[in-house]
């Protein structure tokens, strides 16, 4: 175990070490550190404790954002997920915390079953989470237990549906399928990608 707080507060040599250290600190089983972005995957009951540890022991005092991803097999909008057959349908809640002094940062991630989508609120740990949780609640229909004022932030209170769920159709696309008629130039199809692949970057 190399997870003493003094070591982790320094900028880590590699994101991987930092991620592994933090995962060990909060008892997370899985972490990733791709594309300069550290994800630490938690279970629901580790959520608040992990955020507290991030704040108090890793000095990630800056609350960046909290949001969610709807992993669904059926999508009403856009392209479906990569491996749809084996996709585990769930809501993934993400919370990014970062340092106020250097570029240390991580994203806490937890998965919620679609029929049991609730999570403990982080408001008591990061006051700034209040609005983000309200936004996530209305957009994904996730309940945050212990939130002081979990009402719709953007939408009218009587609005039905959760717009960022993949099952929620985008009205504009229903009315006018994409690409619309105004797109005069035909969009290159994905089939002849190879042929069109290498166009000149600078132009002639």
């Amino acid at each position: 175990m190399t997870d003493s707080p003094s070591e982790t507060t320094e900028a880590p040599n590699t994101l991987g070490t930092f991620a592994a250290d933090f995962a060990a600190l909060v008892g997370a089983e899985r972490w990733t550190a791709d594309h300069g972005t550290v994800h630490v995957y938690l279970s629901r009951d580790q959520w608040v404790a992990a955020a507290t540890a991030a704040r108090d022991e890793t000095e990630l005092a800056f609350f960046s954002f909290l949001s969610a991803v709807d992993w669904a097999k059926e999508v009403a909008v856009g392209e479906p997920a990569d491996d749809v057959e084996n996709l585990d349908e769930r809501y993934e809640v993400l919370c990014r915390l970062s340092s106020g002094t250097d570029d240390t940062a991580l994203i806490l991630s937890t998965s919620l079953a679609k029929d049991d989508a609730w999570l403990d609120s982080l408001v008591s740990v990061y006051a700034g989470a209040a609005w983000h949780e309200r936004e996530t609640a209305e957009m994904f229909g996730i309940d945050f237990h212990g939130h002081p004022n979990l009402i719709n932030l953007y939408l009218p209170q009587e609005f039905e549906g959760h717009p960022l769920r993949k099952s929620f159709a985008l009205g504009a696309r229903e009315v006018k399928p994409w690409p619309g008629k105004v797109d005069v130039e035909e969009l290159p199809s994905t089939e002849n990608v190879e042929a069109a692949a290498q166009t000149d970057g600078e132009g002639s």
Partner: peptide, 18 residues
């Protein structure tokens, strides 16, 4: 050059980044 060489049809490999 102003732009690096990129495919005309941009397909972004699976992954997440912030």
């Amino acid at each position: 050059p102003l732009q690096a060489k990129v495919p005309r049809v941009l397909k972004v490999p699976p992954g997440t980044a912030y």
